[in-house]
Design a protein around this nucleic acid. Structure first.
Lengths: 336, 336
DNA sequence: TTTATTTACGAAACCGTTTTCGTGAATAGG
DNA sequence: CCTATTCACGAAAACGGTTTCGTAAATAAA
């Protein structure tokens, strides 16, 4: 609905549209005086170039897509901050899409990108995503993709992750050293790399600390809060209930604390708790929560930087590199 | 970077581009057989229309902008969820912009929209925004704007808010009834409607409950966490320290709890606390936090619905209506 | 049978930029 | 003084759709 176009500027100044266009882009073909006149009028008439016209012609949109499972999670909202900060810096626009953990949505969203709506994609895959054809397809169509956090390991492109295995290991080791004998790991999805790597770290730690293999205890939770609560309650009611619990993602935290309340189990007296979370309120929970805190902002920022670094090039293919930014274990009362 | 265009489909099928275009849009001018053939080939070749070409021609982008101060706040992330849900439903795309509470950024972002990049705007203004010329300008250029939560009251357009005055009143009344004598209100910005309305409600409550006017106590905090912490510490160290505190926005919560810890003040024994927040962890804080919980998802959804309802029309101007969706006061241990 | 209307399609303009190429004038080189 | 460049600009062709308008054939109306 913009009113003033290049054509109007041109007519007003008795110049051709070509000249005006070049002047606006500060082309060396145009004299300084002409540029000044054009700029002056453009400012006066509040001219802003129509992005659709220029995107069509230039075959680039100056827009990226961010595809996420959800936004109501401190990791993702902080990651968005990181992404947005570089995007704004580079003059790029950010389209946001939520899959709500649904593979079908993810597929539909990605499919749309074959049209050239975006110059690149940052994605953290859904919990249902177990294969990556849709992603390979969009890459094949010439659009670079950078994964962050939740990656598809079999897709050859850039990935920004944290040291999930290591953190799973550290968390479980910490609990073991605190004397826990029965440590339950709460997995969010059996197909997600983050979930599985954290779990493998947990398993390795148990093995290293003389746990029998039969003593690993994985609880598969989902996206339904109430259902998760029930699952956790059941686990805590078991005959040999866990004395340690590791939440693979933030959203389990509330359910764990509430379940312990319900069953009047004391944290950390009866059960020690660690969550993978970036919640600021971890400090002021009852009791303060031991967390594995991911470098969410940095991961978003890094993923975006890698993407932008490669947008200029015509070589569309991103290197199959994996950047690992370490998380840190913050030990607080809930585990000690 | 899309490979297959309408032109390719047309050539392959020995049709004109016009026919193919119409067939794809299911025009009545095209025979059923032809449509079938076109659709089949389009599917086979993975055709997706170039959005920039059609946006240019149709003069509509099927895209809206969401302009927010920040995303790392449970209100805003839930509001995004609401917005995104209707947008995805209507086949619209969502561009996200963060002002980081900066007026200059907000201005720059809005200015860009004069180009027709988006068909409409949802905005929650920055804490620095004290006048609305930039918003009036973009509306004048023909782009509808719907405010949510943080509105400019002098701009005649649709607004979706919660009952801020009422909630400020309820919060202060609740504290007064609990016996608080010195209630401090933490304001986030002296120019924000939400902040001021909540504050006015607070003032009215104090007046109604026989507080002297001199006993209202407003503390203006800002966006710097450390600075806020210092301000709160100082307030709590005062000779006559408050015995009740109302946090106008979520981000003050941590500082309040931590400051009380630092000064070994008991909540609610020494001081009762209420926050305006949508944090799920309110339930499991130490102690559980009394909150004014805003209908964030609904507000986002409603704002988006109003916007979409008016995008179809050519009458660009939105009615100057204000939709109020009430918040609820959840009383928990921190105040009782 | 003649005329009016509908059906199914194509030609071409158009959306607002960018970019290639061409050109006359001015300047530089020899 | 004559020939190369450089300078500063314009004409026109893209980019990939959508939409208007025209039209031949088929059908309906009279």
């Amino acid at each position: 609905m913009s009113n003033t176009t290049i054509k109007i500027l041109a007519k007003e100044l008795n110049l051709s549209v070509a000249t005006v266009s070049k002047a606006l882009r500060d082309s060396h073909e145009i004299s300084t005086e002409t540029k000044k006149k054009v700029l002056a009028l453009a400012r006066e008439l509040n001219y802003v170039a129509n992005p659709y016209a220029s995107s069509l012609r230039k075959r680039r949109s100056n827009t990226i897509a961010v595809v996420l499972p959800e936004v109501a999670d401190s990791f993702f909202s902080q990651a968005i901050n990181g992404i947005e900060s570089v995007a704004q810096d580079k003059g790029y626009h950010v389209l946001i899409y939520l899959t709500h953990e649904s593979f079908a949505r993810e597929e539909a969203i990605l499919k749309e990108f074959q049209s050239g709506r975006v110059d690149g994609i940052l994605i953290s895959i859904s919990g249902e995503t177990s294969h990556s054809d849709h992603i390979k397809e969009v890459i094949a169509s010439g659009i670079p993709v950078v994964f962050f956090d939740r990656v598809c390991e079999d897709v050859e492109t850039a990935k920004v992750i944290t040291d999930d295995f290591e953190c799973g290991y550290q968390a479980a080791t910490h609990l073991a050293k605190q004397g826990c004998k029965r440590i339950t790991f709460l997995s969010v999805s059996s197909s997600l790399s983050i979930s599985n790597n954290r779990m493998e770290g947990y398993k390795k730690a148990l093995a290293d600390h003389q746990f029998k293999n039969s003593q690993t205890d994985i609880l598969f939770c989902g996206n339904d809060i109430d259902e998760n609560y029930r699952l956790i309650i059941n686990a805590l009611k078991k005959d040999k209930r866990p004395d340690g619990i590791i939440a693979c993602v933030e959203k389990f935290t509330n359910s764990i604390y509430l379940a312990c309340n319900e069953l009047t189990l004391s944290i950390p007296g009866d059960i020690r708790v660690i969550s993978f979370t970036n919640l600021q309120t971890a400090l002021i929970l009852n009791p303060p929560l031991t967390t594995v805190t991911q470098p969410a902002f940095e991961m978003g920022k890094t993923a975006a930087s890698i993407l932008f670094r490669n947008l200029g090039k015509n070589s569309t293919a991103l290197k199959n590199e994996t950047v690992i930014i370490p998380s840190v274990l913050h030990v607080r009362c809930s585990s000690s």
